[in-house]
Design a protein around this nucleic acid. Structure first.
Length: 591
RNA sequence: CGGGGCGUAGCGCAGCCUGGUUAGCGCGCCUGCCUUGGGAGCAGGAGGUCACCAGUUCGAAUCUGGUCGCCCCGACCA
């Protein structure tokens, strides 16, 4: 492909709206172009990267035995009402009216559609297990699209669904997908980590997310450098609770009531009373399955809603609004406390380790000082309720946890019978008994493969694509394009390399060398071949890898063979690395 | 949905506060000359409903009100 025919609109200046490295560089490299908030065009160069990622995903899904199909993005809302997710998804679901006044939705995911297919077509245990997948555009009315193609309203997703007869089959299907994901991201050259993820109210015994650590990541990963424990902060447990409960000091004085006019937040109260936030506690009121319930946490800690939900045994929790709070407790928000509270309360373990706390007085403009946990309020319902954070003890080994941000590129998830029950998907087992099918779902954000590759691999000059998903393998840069012999040589080299199966771009623009080199670095094609009059005089062309500082020269007459050799060697090296990782995973897997 | 910022040429911006010829600058684009190994130089040129609507005014990019759009922080995120 010649650059002059390729429509690669590179930009020298950084577009003002772009902040994240992947956003800036993909725009500047002419790979994407914004249409509106959360909607992007993939220009030819960007589309090539996307399609290479698609191809890798498809190959590994097929190799794992999954069957590809294609479901409609346009779905009847009735299906969503049937599963109960019409309400649960809320505004995130894009709805539209079609002719005849019918309500339709643009699919944000396809559990409902797949379950609808399966309940008709799967009748017998003999048809199981089966895993189906598709690569398709998804729609979500994101309240806040951001970071370029990281979070958009329309995106390309590979979603797979395993259909199994029992838990044993589900575990096998899940493990296959897990392994396929490792192979996919290994092949894409992404430095991913696998973390335990919150599986939500569905339960299910496991869920893992594949994360690429980077500053634009929207998730927080909590990990232990000592034992390798890693979890999404939504999921991460906190260790070392065994000895934390403290006996109330019998000599402790009674608590006292203090006036705190207008001081509602922890910060305001603590500053007003001149005490550290770690010595205060806050009472948060939620609606758990519609009924008020409270969580008591240390003032500087964050509530983890999933832990709270599990502690209450509820299927959903949501923050109560101020009016509801006042109605349920008799006290407006800002002055709530555990002493004499009238609604069910669970207490975070950290509270039990405190000798005395500052809390709300359950009356306007009143807080209480010197309240003793276990004496002035009950510690019967003690749970791990807060978000783990850096410095907390690891739940496995007790070492100090650390945190970093990560970009979620894949998620594997055991659904169980959530959809087969709500939508009536059953099969007949060996004994002729009607049984609910068991499902798993597995997603990969294809666009995020592209974004995270850039986040993980770029420098001051531009993108450094991994060979496997680079838009082209080789960029040939003829320097003097008016020199017919030189251009001819460049095009001959292109033909030879293309014939050998490589993707080749030729920068045939009539520009100064510096200009072309800058663009070459920006778009990040792995191997650059410079053909100039100077080198050609000595029968040499220059070869330089994007990820290496130094260029080398090779004889021009055999340039095709040496370039092919270099690319093949790189590929082989990467394949071997992938194979080693596979072997290591297989060895680590409990049989 | 709350807070903040911004909308002037394909991109980056100035002008607005203090209304007044033909709305400017840099990059990019077109033509020519010149130059040719890390985003050159000179000359000429094309490109604008100043986001939109309404108002104030003799006169609005500029002042007022409204609408829309975009970005950032937060909330939210199967």
């Amino acid at each position: 492909m010649r650059w002059t025919h390729a429509l690669i609109p590179t930009l020298k200046e950084t577009p003002a709206d772009a902040v994240a490295p992947s956003h800036v560089l993909l725009l500047r490299a002419g790979m994407i172009r914004q249409l509106g908030a959360g909607t992007y065009t993939y220009m030819p160069l960007g589309l090539r990267v996307l399609q290479k990622a698609v191809q890798i995903v498809r190959q590994e899904m097929d190799a794992a035995g999954a069957l590809e199909l294609l479901m409609p993005a346009l779905q009847p809302v009735e299906l969503w009402k049937e599963s109960g997710r019409f309400e649960a998804y809320g505004d995130l679901l894009m709805k539209l009216a079609i002719s005849g006044g019918h309500q339709m939705a643009l699919g944000p995911t396809h559990e409902e559609v797949i379950t609808d297919i399966v309940r008709d077509l799967i009748r017998s245990y003999k048809q199981l297990p089966v895993t189906l997948y598709q690569i398709q555009t998804k729609f979500r009315d994101e309240p806040r699209p951001r970071f370029g193609i990281v979070r958009t309203r329309e995106f390309l997703m590979k979603d797979a669904y395993s259909i199994d007869a029992d838990l044993g089959q589900l575990n096998t299907s899940y493990d296959k997908m897990y392994e396929a994901y490792c192979r996919i991201f290994d092949r894409c050259g992404l430095p991913y980590v696998i973390v335990e993820a919150e599986s939500g109210p569905i339960g299910g015994d496991s869920s893992h997310e594949f994360m690429v650590p980077c500053s634009t990541g929207e998730d927080t990963v909590i990990f232990c450098g000592k034992c390798g424990y890693a979890a999404n902060q939504e999921r991460a447990e906190i260790g070392g609770h065994d000895h934390a409960v403290r006996t109330p000091d019998p000599a402790a004085p009674a608590y006292e009531s203090v006036d705190t006019p207008g001081k509602r937040t922890i910060r305001e109260v603590c500053q007003f009373l001149d005490v550290p936030e770690q010595t205060s506690a806050k009472l948060l009121v939620y609606l758990a399955d519609g009924k008020p319930a409270a969580a008591l946490l240390r003032g500087d800690h964050e509530l983890n809603e999933a832990k709270f939900r599990r502690a209450l045994g509820a299927s959903s929790v949501e923050p109560a609004d101020p009016a509801t709070i006042e109605k349920a407790t008799g006290t407006p928000m800002g002055f709530l406390g555990p002493v004499g509270i009238r609604i069910p309360m669970v207490v975070d373990r950290a509270i039990a380790a405190m000798p005395a706390v500052v809390v709300g007085g359950n009356a306007v403009d009143v807080h209480l000082k010197g309240v003793v946990p276990g004496r002035d309020f009950s510690l019967e319902s003690l749970h791990d309720l807060r978000n783990a954070d850096a410095g907390d003890p690891c739940p496995r080994c007790g070492g100090a946890l650390e945190r970093k941000s990560g970009l979620e590129i894949g998620h594997v998830f055991k659904l169980g019978t959530k959809y087969s029950k709500s939508m009536g998907a059953t099969y007949l087992d060996e004994k002729g008994a009607e049984t609910h099918i068991i499902m798993g779902c597995y997603g990969i954000g294809i666009n995020r493969i592209v974004a995270s590759a850039v986040e993980a691999s770029h420098d001051a000059n531009g993108i450094v694509w991994p060979l496997s998903i680079a838009p082209y393998h080789v960029l040939i840069v003829p320097l003097q394009v008016q020199n017919a012999a030189l251009i001819e040589r460049a095009l001959a080299l292109e033909s030879a390399l293309s014939a050998a199966g490589l993707d080749v771009l030729v920068d045939d623009r009539d520009q100064r060398p510096g200009f072309k080199f800058k663009d070459a670095d920006l778009i990040g094609i792995p191997l650059r071949v410079v053909i100039g009059e100077r080198g050609l005089k000595d029968g040499q062309v220059e070869v330089k890898w994007r990820d290496q500082a130094e260029a080398r020269t090779v004889p021009a007459d055999s340039a095709d063979r040496s370039i092919l050799g270099e690319i093949e060697a790189r590929k082989r090296q990467h394949d071997e690395w992938c194979a080693e990782r596979r072997t290591a995973r297989a060895a680590a897997r409990p049989s």
